[in-house]
């Protein structure tokens, strides 16, 4: 099934660890490396937002309503320069974006992690135990995946209401099924391999077989799906917040910043919406590009 057997290459002069090999393969695409660097920068900005922001946009003492809607490069009454302008409340857009990025990434990462954990457990158990467990679980997964993510999120948020915790729950509910399906799919393939049989023959416990033997082997596709899903989650959160049913105004993410700016856009004050929009775009596109390259590198069928 793979070409690995008949085209066994001559041994490389230095023995690479799989990780070194992975890094080398990944670095083959300059676009992907650039995307990874961009994402690292985005991540740094999000983590260090309180340290590097010119002002704390949620500290009312630092904000003056008189500074509202200044264009990029405008000066505040106190002499501060707003490089990307200010919003309707007179907040520095640059600072607001840094904080918004922080919220967006936090929500994306948290929901992704929990969804991954849940999806992984469900998918692994479905594949490992098979039979009726598998049938029931996969029916639910299929049913959920037949509805678009935004609709599922809409249903949940309509019932739960606004809030960081609520939107994380909604995003977990939206995503877990993708992980479950992916894990089950690759775990089913791996389960038939001899090493699992060998582990079973050794009398290892279910838990040990699943987590120490099966899990590491289903990680590659999971990582790929995970990258794409986090980009989706960030986009979906931004969309829901833009619609006004995601995050509360007290904790604005990029989506909410864009929504706030949207009201001013028709009067030509483009910067309030555009800059957070660009930040969102850079984040999503860089994650997707990294994900694309990961898929190529980790896909066993494409391995040289």
């Amino acid at each position: 099934m793979t070409f690995a057997t008949d085209t066994a290459p001559a041994l490389p002069p230095k023995v690479e660890t799989p990780f070194q090999r992975f890094v080398a393969d990944f670095a083959e695409s300059p676009v992907a490396v650039a995307a990874l660097a961009t994402f690292a920068a985005v991540l740094f900005v999000a983590l260090a937002a309180p340290l590097i922001s010119p002002q704390n946009p949620y500290d009312l003492r630092q904000i003056d309503i008189m500074d509202s809607r200044l264009p990029p490069g405008g000066q505040s009454l106190a002499g501060m320069t707003f490089w990307l302008g200010t919003d309707g409340q007179g907040r520095d857009m640059l600072s607001a974006m840094f904080y918004g990025l922080r919220t967006s990434l936090f929500v994306g990462a948290m929901s992704g992690m929990f969804a991954l954990a849940i999806g992984m457990c469900v998918g692994l158990s479905a594949a490992y135990f098979g039979g009726r467990v598998d049938t029931i679980v996969m029916r639910i997964v299929d049913l959920q995946l037949s509805f678009p993510a935004i609709l599922v999120a809409l249903i949940l948020l309509a019932v739960l209401g606004k809030g960081v915790d609520k939107i994380i729950i909604a995003l977990i509910a939206v995503q877990w099924a993708y992980y479950a399906r992916t894990v089950r799919g690759s775990a089913l393939v791996e389960r038939r391999r001899e090493y699992i049989e060998a582990a079973t023959c050794l009398g290892l416990s279910h838990k040990r077989i699943v987590f120490r033997h099966l899990l590491p082997n289903v990680m590659p596709p999971l990582i790929v799906v995970g990258t794409v899903q986090i980009a989706h989650a960030i986009a979906l959160e931004a969309t829901l917040s833009f619609l006004g049913i995601g995050l509360p105004v007290t904790e604005p993410s990029l989506g909410l910043l864009i929504a706030n700016g949207f009201n001013y856009m028709l009067s030509g004050k483009y910067w309030i919406s555009i800059f957070p929009g660009i930040a969102l775009l850079i984040t999503i596109v860089s994650i997707n590009l990294v994900g694309d390259q990961l898929r190529d590198v980790l896909n066993p069928r494409l391995q040289k």
Binding site: T239, F242, L243, G255, I258, Y270, I284, V285
Partner: peptide, 17 residues
């Protein structure tokens, strides 16, 4: 990759504004 609402905003900005 582009979130649909972002594209919508861009369309409004370019073609309407």
């Amino acid at each position: 990759s582009l979130p649909s609402f972002w594209v919508g905003i861009m369309l409004i900005m370019i073609f309407a504004v």
